[in-house]
Amino acid sequence: MNIPRVMSRNVTQPQINSPSSGRKLNPIKLPRQKEKVVVVMGATGTGKSRLSIDLATVFHAQIINSDKMQVYEGLDIVTNKITKEDRRGVPHHLLGTESPYSEFTASHFRDAALLAIESITSCGQLPIIVGGSNSYIEALIDDYDYKFRSRYDFCCLSVDVSMPVLDQYVAKRVDQMLENGMVDELRPLFNPKGDYSRGIRKAIGVPEFDQYFRKESFIMDEGIKQRLVEEAVNEMKKNTYKLARKQLGKIHRLHNVKRWKIQRLNATTVFCKHGEEAEEAWKKKVAEPSARMVARFLFDFPSANVGAGLRLCSPSALRSAMATATCDGYVLTAGYPRLSIF
């Protein structure tokens, strides 16, 4: 979805002068307005990465990965890392940056994410945190020293897909991984004495293929080899189904127990369609509603005015209507047509 970008602009507080005497008073120290952060959550396979890119191209943002397997270097197919092409030029942080054999904990993520957020906001851009590892996100937002909440306001979006529909999609995605060369990607990580409780070896796919790689060199019958691959793939699918339900359960806990305000986007319809119909459903059910939610969060628009402030228009109409428009200290820049905010 192509939409005009939004860039934040810092607004400084003026000094206060006494109108009666002309005497300059000390500046009033008003509370510092918190920077804003967007969080995109959801179970594996629901389209979180796609939505984060859509939002980043609207709101002039950079993305911080919060998937605990995608943070490691390697296994791009198995961990389903977003490709450079699909990133559409949007900068990503903590994506494939860590050694695959190290242990990148929730505490490590919290510290690294805080640095990334500070770097992004310092250049007037919006941080978007995206990933399925809710333990990482919770460690960041509800950190023990209140560092995040004291400095940032956050908006949580959750992309939801009904479980039966998501299960079907996940199964197809694992089959596609196999066609894309997953076995060859996994092979270098095989170690008969490998520890599946650390680093990237925890990724779904690595332990599931352990038995196949142990027996591969001793089996000459291709039919038996194929059966072992199928068993590993089926185990991957089952474990991915379990992961999706576990992720959804954590989101429900954050909402119901910790009272996080999490705004739900139901993408089930998208997964039931194909081609242009799926693209249209994504735009109507996910991309545009999420843009409205984020605009309301960033600009403090009253709910009643948000729908009126977002309108579809052609690229030529957008460029002629505005080269640059301002709104409460934010600048909206043209160049990404279809959806404009006024």
Score class of each variant (00 low, 15 high):
Met1Val: 15
Met1Pro: 07
Asn2Trp: 11
Ile3Ala: 13
Ile3Glu: 12
Pro4Thr: 14
Pro4Asp: 14
Arg5Pro: 06
Met7Gln: 13
Met7Glu: 14
Met7Arg: 15
Met7Gly: 07
Ser8Thr: 13
Ser8His: 08
Ser8Asn: 07
Ser8Met: 15
Arg9Phe: 10
Arg9Gln: 12
Asn10Met: 13
Asn10Gln: 13
Val11Gly: 07
Val11Asn: 07
Val11Phe: 09
Val11Met: 13
Thr12Pro: 06
Gln13Leu: 14
Gln13Val: 15
Gln13Ala: 06
Pro14Thr: 02
Gln15Gly: 03
Gln15Val: 09
Gln15Asp: 09
Ile16His: 00
Ile16Ala: 00
Asn17Val: 05
Ser18His: 12
Ser18Met: 07
Ser21Ala: 07
Arg23Ser: 12
Arg23Cys: 09
Lys24Gly: 00
Leu25Ala: 00
Asn26Glu: 02
Asn26Trp: 03
Asn26Tyr: 01
Asn26Cys: 02
Asn26Ser: 04
Asn26Gln: 02
Ile28Gly: 00
Ile28Ala: 02
Lys29Trp: 01
Lys29Cys: 08
Pro31Gly: 06
Pro31Glu: 11
Pro31Gln: 13
Pro31Cys: 08
Arg32Gln: 14
Arg32His: 13
Arg32Glu: 15
Arg32Thr: 14
Arg32Cys: 06
Gln33Thr: 15
Gln33Val: 15
Gln33Trp: 11
Lys34Asn: 09
Lys34Gly: 10
Lys34Ala: 09
Lys34Ser: 09
Glu35Leu: 13
Glu35His: 12
Glu35Trp: 09
Lys36Leu: 07
Lys36Val: 11
Lys36Met: 10
Val37Ile: 03
Val37Pro: 03
Val38Gln: 04
Val38Asp: 08
Val38Glu: 06
Val38Met: 07
Val38Trp: 04
Val39Leu: 06
Val40Tyr: 05
Val40Pro: 05
Val40Asp: 06
Val40Cys: 03
Val40Ile: 11
Met41Ala: 04
Met41His: 04
Gly42Met: 02
Gly42Phe: 04
Ala43Thr: 05
Ala43Met: 10
